[in-house]
């Protein structure tokens, strides 16, 4: 299996935050969603991947290049967008396109013009007057028109209106059709991540708390609503991370759901009212809660 990104034991210490032994593997040609709340370490991880920040410990390999030492070679094939990235306000979109074209021999004029039309952008427009959505589209154009092998997108859809968000996601879906491209996509909007990702990593307080392919996440997490007899003691099951009990009703959250579990619960005398699939957001929140509980205990 080839990996576009391999992070092993990556540590970065700041006075008030530590990225704590992060392991992150992204398969070539796949889309990984990188989910975490603000300040969890998503941007720091992505900056380390780009060689913009140097890790204190651990090994980082991007497209076969050790980072940050071989960042020049790696960055030729990486397209990076971050939420706080800004364009030169006194200049036009065309100025930026020409500048990027001068840096990247792989720049594709035809594709760039196609993206201009598709995004409704005007080459001669000054970037000062662009809306947030137009700015993100311009950045995406600058990144895509040079056809990078890896896209590192740090919260690209944050703050966008629903229409602009849809356009950006559609374009990313279009890119995914080319199975040689790899995308690492961070967001705290789990709905966006759920739509385009093959695998998902959750990060919280500088630690990766879970990392799996999307289907495994969605298939293995369940919320089970039970009616139980009074004084009933719920049996212990591996993977059960939360039990809420109120009178004769109980809600059980598991990260390791199997049909046998239902059979066990029934044989123990409880009545299963519903078995609910969980959204990625619910899975993340439950995962984060469990990680916090583990730290607290």
């Amino acid at each position: 299996m080839n990996f576009a990104i391999k992070c092993q034991g990556v540590v970065k210490r700041y006075p008030h935050f530590t990225l704590d032994h992060v392991d992150l593997m992204v398969e070539e040609g796949s889309v990984m969603g990188f989910v975490g709340p603000n300040g969890a370490g998503k941007s720091t991880t992505m900056r380390i991947l780009m060689g913009l920040v140097c890790q204190d410990e651990g090994a980082v390999d991007v497209l076969g290049h050790s980072m940050p030492a071989e960042q020049i070679a790696a960055k030729r094939d990486i397209g990076f967008i971050s939420e706080d990235m800004r364009l030169f306000e006194s200049e036009t979109i065309g100025f930026h396109m020409n500048f990027f074209k001068s840096v990247y021999p792989s720049w594709d004029d035809g594709y760039a013009d196609d993206l201009l039309k598709r995004f409704g952008l005007i080459r001669g427009q000054k970037t000062k007057g662009l809306s947030h959505g137009q700015r993100v589209k311009t950045l995406l154009l600058l990144v895509l028109a040079r056809r990078p092998r890896l896209l590192v997108l740090d919260e690209p859809t944050t703050g966008l209106d629903p229409v602009a968000r849809r356009e950006i996601l559609d374009q990313l879906m279009h890119i995914i059709e080319d199975e040689t491209r790899t995308i690492l996509f961070s967001s705290h909007n789990t709905l966006d991540v759920e739509q385009i990702s093959d695998s998902i990593s959750f990060i919280l307080n500088g630690r990766i708390i879970d990392s799996k392919d999307k289907e495994t996440f969605l298939d293995s997490w369940r919320r089970i609503r039970l009616q139980v007899p009074e004084d009933f003691r719920l049996p212990q099951h591996d993977g059960v991370i939360d039990i809420k009990h109120s009178g004769s009703l109980a809600v059980l959250t598991t990260r390791d759901f199997t049909e046998e579990m239902i059979a066990d619960l029934k044989s123990d005398g409880s009545s299963v009212q519903a078995v609910e699939r969980m959204t990625l957001e619910e899975i993340f929140v439950a995962n984060a809660q469990q990680a916090r509980n583990e730290v607290a205990s």
Partner: peptide, 14 residues
């Protein structure tokens, strides 16, 4: 200060 540095440093430049 106006966050143009991430754009420039994302290019193949040290």
């Amino acid at each position: 200060t106006e966050h143009k540095l991430p754009l420039i440093m994302s290019l193949p430049v040290t």
